[in-house]
Design a protein around this nucleic acid. Structure first.
Length: 376
DNA sequence: CGGGACCCTCGAGG
DNA sequence: ACCTCGAGGGTCC
């Protein structure tokens, strides 16, 4: 079967599918080695129904090709959707040249390699990163796909591969149980997933909102980052790290750096960031003044997050993705045969050789930027 | 406030 | 070829 692909001109240095779709941000893209293309199911635009989307990158001509299977009509809608999903309003070149290189020498010897932060569906992001705790990428990938095949809806089957939707909170609540999830190998996260799904169903009902996406987006409205994180942390299995991942990749809070053990280590080693008593005291005061969280925010890690924001600016989360992707790489993504594919590091080198063309995109200065509390 | 326990897989090292 | 052991993008108690 052949499809009519839409096309989008985009430099490889601005977007490299291999570096973005298999780097541990998104866990549900399937890579077809033979056809050299990626596929997954996603909601397009404001629609609630899922479609199968196929992507491939013409590396020679630096063109992204895309198609939604079964969606003969509106290719423009998919194009618009992908522009948002890949955040093509943001120019990596601009960030490198005008923001990061001037403020951080580590960026001077790097060049844009098509690594960027995605704008993912927030509910799926929430569940995916609940699965990520104390876990490795290949297992997270399996778990995400398991949720879809066991509790999502069958969308269609292509070349023997069944594509399912990511289950909504209602679908998880009605179709899954903790015991069933444990059987499927979710371990202690089984409880977190069920309880989070249940709470979201209740929260939505209270807010009179039916869509998971819309609800999670709505918590950002008129809210500071701290409030959003606090709200996210009210779900079981969501601590500061997972909440920050949702903020960055699901709610486009570009300045948020999720601080994990790797980032913490590198921040100390390469940036000599460490919290002294005074820092900790001020942070304690700050959080004591906010509505009480039943969970603890690790003040030392929070200090690192703030210092990295200070260093890298309103796209600090992106800077972290660019800088650390090599350190925390590993394996991700599925293939059509179901085996895990090693990430192609040689692809990065290849990208490096490509001459960066001038981008006409400018950095979006959206009003959704987070207003971070400053440490004086 | 801090350290242990927590599910399960994989791969390095014996 | 087996086995064992610890880490793997944290969170809860």
């Amino acid at each position: 079967m052949s499809y009519k692909f839409g096309k989008l001109a985009i430099n490889k240095s601005e977007l490299c599918l291999a570096n973005v779709l298999q780097a541990g941000q998104s866990f549900r893209w399937i890579w077809d080695e033979k056809l050299n293309q990626y596929s997954t199911t996603m909601k397009i635009g404001q629609q609630e129904k899922y479609s199968v989307v196929i992507l491939r990158q013409d590396e020679e001509n630096e063109i992204l090709e895309f198609v939604a299977v079964g969606d003969c009509g509106n290719q423009d809608a998919l194009k618009t959707h992908l522009m948002k999903y890949f955040r093509l309003d943001v120019s990596l070149k601009h960030l490198f040249d005008n923001v990061w290189i001037p403020s951080d020498k580590a960026f001077a010897k790097l060049s844009p390699q098509g690594i960027r932060i995605l704008a993912q569906e927030p509910w799926e992001t929430l569940i995916s990163f609940i699965c990520s705790s104390n876990n490795n990428i290949s297992r997270i990938t399996r778990m995400c796909n398991s949720l879809c095949s066991n509790f999502g809806n069958l969308i269609t089957t292509i070349d023997g591969v069944a594509y399912h939707s990511f289950p909504t909170s209602e679908e998880l609540t009605s179709r899954a149980t903790e015991a069933k999830l444990r059987e499927l190998g979710f371990g202690y996260r089984a409880k977190y997933i069920i309880e989070t799904a249940r709470k979201l169903v209740n929260d939505k009902a209270e807010a009179n909102i039916t869509s998971d996406t819309t609800y999670l987006q709505s918590i950002c409205k008129d809210a500071q980052y701290e409030d959003v994180r606090e709200h996210l942390m009210s779900y079981n299995g969501v601590g500061p790290k997972v909440a920050d991942c949702v903020c960055l990749m699901g709610l486009h809070m570009d300045g948020i750096v999720p601080v994990d053990v790797h980032v913490s280590r590198i921040a100390k080693r390469d940036y000599q960031i460490s919290a002294n008593k005074n820092h900790l005291k001020e942070l304690r005061t700050k959080y004591n003044a906010l509505p009480i969280s039943r969970k603890k925010i690790n003040l030392e890690l929070d200090h690192i997050r703030l210092m990295l924001f200070k260093k890298w600016g309103s796209y600090a989360g992106w800077a972290q993705g660019v800088l650390f992707s090599k350190e925390i790489g590993g394996t991700s993504g599925s293939t059509t045969t179901g085996t895990i594919k090693k990430r192609k590091w040689d692809m990065i080198k290849e990208t490096e050789a490509i001459v960066t063309k001038q981008m006409k995109l400018k950095v979006e200065l959206s009003d959704l930027h987070i207003k971070e509390a400053k440490i004086d």
